[in-house]
Computed example of a mutant assay.
Amino acid sequence: MQSFNSKKLTDVVKPDFYDDIVVDECHNVAAPSYQELLDYFRPKTLLGLTADSSKKWNDRYFFRSFRHYERSVS
């Protein structure tokens, strides 16, 4: 997210430019840098991935951005 924000991509691409966006470490979605981009872009698919599902699950920003499907890999 920091590299997206540092390049000011919102100044040069339209909100529907990306069909799919994958957000790694999505438990950090409440951070302003994440919110700026998630509020701007309108992908067809928004997929959030995290290895630490205990973080931020109750955060209102998380549930506003992603549906909650939990899968365990062992």
Rank of each mutant, 00 (worst) to 15 (best):
M1T: 14
Q2M: 13
Q2L: 13
Q2W: 12
S3P: 09
S3E: 12
S3W: 10
N5Q: 06
S6W: 04
S6Y: 06
S6A: 13
K7D: 08
K7N: 12
K7G: 06
K8F: 07
L9I: 10
L9W: 13
L9G: 04
T10I: 15
T10L: 13
D11F: 09
D11P: 02
V13Q: 06
V13D: 01
K14E: 13
K14C: 00
P15I: 07
P15T: 07
P15N: 07
P15Y: 03
D16T: 12
Y18V: 02
D20N: 13
I21S: 03
I21H: 04
V22M: 01
V22Y: 06
V22K: 01
D24G: 02
D24H: 03
E25T: 05
C26M: 07
H27C: 00
H27N: 03
H27L: 03
N28H: 15
V29C: 13
V29Q: 00
A30Q: 00
A30H: 09
A30Y: 08
A30C: 04
A30I: 02
A31G: 01
P32I: 12
P32K: 14
P32V: 12
S33G: 03
S33K: 00
Y34K: 09
Q35N: 10
L37Y: 05
L37C: 10
L37A: 11
L38T: 10
L38Q: 05
L38P: 02
D39G: 07
Y40P: 05
Y40V: 06
R42H: 12
R42C: 05
R42Q: 15
R42E: 12
P43T: 01
K44H: 03
K44D: 08
T45N: 14
T45Q: 11
T45E: 09
T45K: 14
T45H: 14
L46S: 02
L46N: 02
L46E: 00
L47D: 01
L47S: 04
L47W: 05
G48K: 02
G48F: 08
G48T: 04
G48I: 04
L49K: 06
T50W: 00
T50V: 09
A51M: 04
S54I: 14
K56M: 06
K56C: 11
K56R: 12
N58F: 14
N58A: 07
N58L: 09
D59C: 06
D59N: 14
D59F: 01
R60N: 09
R60T: 11
Y61M: 11
F62G: 01
F62L: 14
F62D: 04
F62A: 07
F63N: 15
R64K: 11
S65F: 11
S65L: 02
F66N: 03
F66W: 02
F66C: 05
F66P: 04
R67G: 15
R67K: 15
H68F: 08
H68S: 11
H68D: 15
H68M: 14
Y69W: 13
Y69F: 15
Y69K: 14
E70I: 11
E70K: 15
R71S: 07
R71I: 15
R71D: 05
S72D: 12
S74K: 10
S74V: 13
